[in-house]
């Protein structure tokens, strides 16, 4: 029997990526009957869906953000589940705690929806697993050859070096509350920094959840219950938006640092008033995007969001047919991970 082309059964709708024979939508941007969620970031996991299928960690994150949700089903990594007529398997994506690629098998065709992913080691989550398929649906957040993420220990080393140079200043590190913050904390711990780390209120719930899932973040304290004088020479983590917020005024001569892949572009860092840019990203960089396609060896590639044109062009020259899906609602318009919007449910 000839296989059924993916374009016959996966549709781009205004809700998101709809899998027709399974009756579910992946990372819907509006509430749907059945949602399958790749990971817990606010642009992929939203509240209000009738039923949700996701990893235990992702469901935990969603509970943290949206409160208790009914109608959930837990997916374990690498254990196929049948949804409607589709076989669904969650595979580690290496993006944040609980993040998954979704392998869809139907009518003899294998499709992998990667969600957001990275290829670098991350002490807070299992690494990306290469899953051969016919259609690979990828993100393209950093799909330009200018994006080449440096070694993350090197970047954290620069933070520690700055702390040594300016021991009288509070080092304020802007980092996404889910994933980036915990990764930065773990990297600091790996480099031997075992002093207490201070958190903006919006960080606490997710950090505690990581610890419940067995990620040991060490001694964490809240800024709000610390005297400003005790923050001198300490490292404080906060959501990116809080860096330039009135909240940061309580710090003593803060050095404002930011951990983000966008920090690779000097003027982006400058725009944000960042003094110490730390190029640390939870997304694949340019070479890793291309490397991933070479390893996954798909018949074709669909691109969800980011710099689609550049990636489609490069894949075209590699002989891999690629098209942009023009999905809306994901954080694609430049540096939204810097716009300062605190993820829903994590207000200070």
């Amino acid at each position: 029997m000839p296989s059924v082309p993916a374009s016959n059964w996966i549709k781009v709708t205004s809700d998101g990526l709809h899998v027709v024979p399974g009756g579910f939508t992946i990372d819907p941007v509006r509430p749907v009957e059945r949602a399958v969620i790749t990971h817990g970031h606010g642009d992929h996991a939203r509240g209000g869906n009738k039923t949700v299928l996701a990893t235990a960690e992702t469901l935990g994150i969603m509970r943290e953000r949206f409160g208790p949700n009914s109608g959930t089903q837990t997916a374990a990594y690498d254990e196929p589940i049948t949804v409607g007529d589709v076989r669904v398997t969650f595979v580690p994506a290496g993006h944040v705690l609980g993040s998954a690629q979704i392998l869809l098998e139907y009518g003899g065709t294998r499709v992998v929806v990667s969600g957001d992913y990275k290829r670098r080691r991350d002490p807070t989550c299992p690494p990306f697993v290469v899953t051969p398929c016919d259609v690979f649906i990828t993100e393209a957040t950093f799909a330009l050859p200018v994006f080449c993420h440096p070694d993350d220990h090197g970047e954290i080393g620069r933070l520690l070096q700055s702390l040594k140079l300016f021991p009288e200043r509070t080092h304020l590190v802007g980092a996404y509350a889910l994933g980036k913050a915990q990764r930065v904390i773990m990297l600091l711990r790996e480099l031997g920094y075992d002093a207490p780390l201070y958190l903006h209120g919006a960080m606490l719930g997710l950090c505690e959840m990581y610890q419940r899932f067995g990620v040991d973040l060490g001694d964490l304290r809240l800024v709000s219950s610390t005297k400003p004088a005790d923050l001198v020479g300490q490292i404080v983590l906060c959501p990116p938006g809080a860096l330039a917020d009135r909240w940061s005024r309580r710090m003593h001569e803060p050095v404002s640092a930011m951990a983000s892949g966008w920090m690779r572009i000097r003027q982006r860092a400058k725009q944000r008033g960042v003094e110490l840019p730390l190029v640390i990203s939870d997304h694949a960089d340019w070479n890793e995007l291309l490397q991933t396609v070479r390893e996954v060896k798909p018949g074709e590639v669909w691109i969800t969001h980011g710099r689609e044109e550049a990636l489609a062009h490069a894949l075209g020259t590699m002989g891999v047919p690629a098209k942009a899906l023009s999905l809306v609602g994901y954080e694609d318009e430049n540096d939204d991970d810097l716009t300062g919007a605190t993820p829903p449910g994590t207000a200070a």
Binding site: P145, V146, Q267, R307, E309, A310
Partner: peptide, 19 residues
């Protein structure tokens, strides 16, 4: 073509080439 996409994104010739 990739240079053109990158330059448009970065907005600075020296930085684009350097990166």
């Amino acid at each position: 073509a990739l240079f053109a996409y990158s330059y448009d994104y970065v907005g600075d010739l020296a930085e684009t080439i350097a990166l």
